[in-house]
Simulated assay, not measured.
Amino acid sequence: MSGAVDLAQLSILSWVFMSVAALIIGISKTALPGAGSVVVALFAVAIPARESTATLLLLLIVGDLLAIWVYRSNAHWPTLLRLFPAVLVGIVLGVAFLAVADETWVRRVIAIILLLVVATTLWRRWRARGADAPAAAGRVAAGIYGTLGGFATMVANAAGPVMSMYFLAARFPVKQFLGTAAWFFAVVNVAKVPFAAGLGLFSVDGLWIDLILVPGVLLGAIVGRLIAGRMSQRIFERIVIVLTVGGALYLLW
């Protein structure tokens, strides 16, 4: 494994950013999916963008497993099966991009992906107003969202906002949303591990960072479970949208 992460040279501010990110990972997986874009931004600022993708990936898998345990009976499998083929295509495209992209381009694409998510978020919410049927149920929508989500997750671990908008448009109740998202990201993130390893994105120092930050993910998951149990559907949907927009703007800044 190789990488540019160096534990000895990480600043206190970098550790603060990553610790906050670990807490948000736990909360986002069990309560507020849109918060994931903030995590991407914090890690991209704390450590080199290419290495942040792999280091963050393992923490996300920990969060996914916790979310599966919490919402193990709430997944909507027909939706998942419809999405996975397109996601695989997106992952392959992301691998090809990472093989040729330098640090600057990785950062730029992270920002562009999140901007596209913001635009898609607002457009689909406007289009779905007053509709009786789920707006994201079709195969075309699944193909578009799945491919973009697969590319975004491979390049920047930024599929959370993309897929949150898909699940919102499908009008899932809070627990079904979170359960479906938990299984979706667990499968996708585990599938990404060999690709990331093949690209040499993992490093020994990155793995130590993950080990140190795991307790923060656990704490966040506990907090998120408490929040989700007290949140209405309407508030949940609004928070997801606001966090998605906020994460994109933060990264650009």
Rank of each mutant, 00 (worst) to 15 (best):
R129T: 11
N74P: 03
M1W: 13
R125M: 09
R82S: 08
P48C: 08
L98W: 08
A169P: 05
L23S: 04
S11Y: 10
G94C: 00
V16G: 06
V70R: 15
D132R: 09
K192V: 12
I239P: 00
A158P: 00
K29G: 04
L115G: 14
A159W: 06
A135S: 14
G138M: 06
A181V: 10
I144Y: 05
E103C: 02
K192H: 11
A22W: 04
R124G: 10
Y250V: 14
A96K: 11
A22C: 07
I113L: 14
W126M: 13
A152L: 02
R50H: 14
N74R: 13
L252K: 05
M1G: 12
T79Y: 13
R50T: 09
I61D: 08
L42R: 03
L218C: 08
I209Q: 08
A197E: 10
A169S: 14
F97P: 02
I24W: 00
S19I: 01
P173R: 02
A128W: 08
F202W: 06
L251Q: 07
D102Q: 07
I25K: 00
A228D: 07
L23Y: 07
P161W: 04
R108Q: 11
Q9C: 04
M18H: 05
A4M: 13
A131D: 12
A128M: 14
V20H: 05
W15C: 01
G246D: 12
S2N: 15
L226I: 09
V62N: 03
Q9I: 03
V190E: 07
Q233N: 15
A142L: 01
D102R: 01
A196P: 08
A21I: 03
I25A: 00
D210N: 11
D6M: 09
D6H: 11
N74K: 13
I212T: 15
I212F: 07
R127A: 13
V155A: 05
R230C: 07
V214M: 11
L65F: 13
L80K: 02
L58K: 05
A133E: 14
T147G: 08
L88D: 00
I209H: 10
L66G: 09
T244N: 12
G63K: 03
G160E: 02
A181G: 15
L10G: 11
T104F: 08
G216I: 01
V62L: 06
I47K: 04
A197V: 12
A46V: 10
T104Q: 13
F185C: 11
I27K: 00
A49W: 02
P33D: 05
L116M: 15
F17H: 11
T121I: 06
S232Y: 09
I110H: 12
Y166L: 12
L13P: 04
T104C: 01
D6T: 12
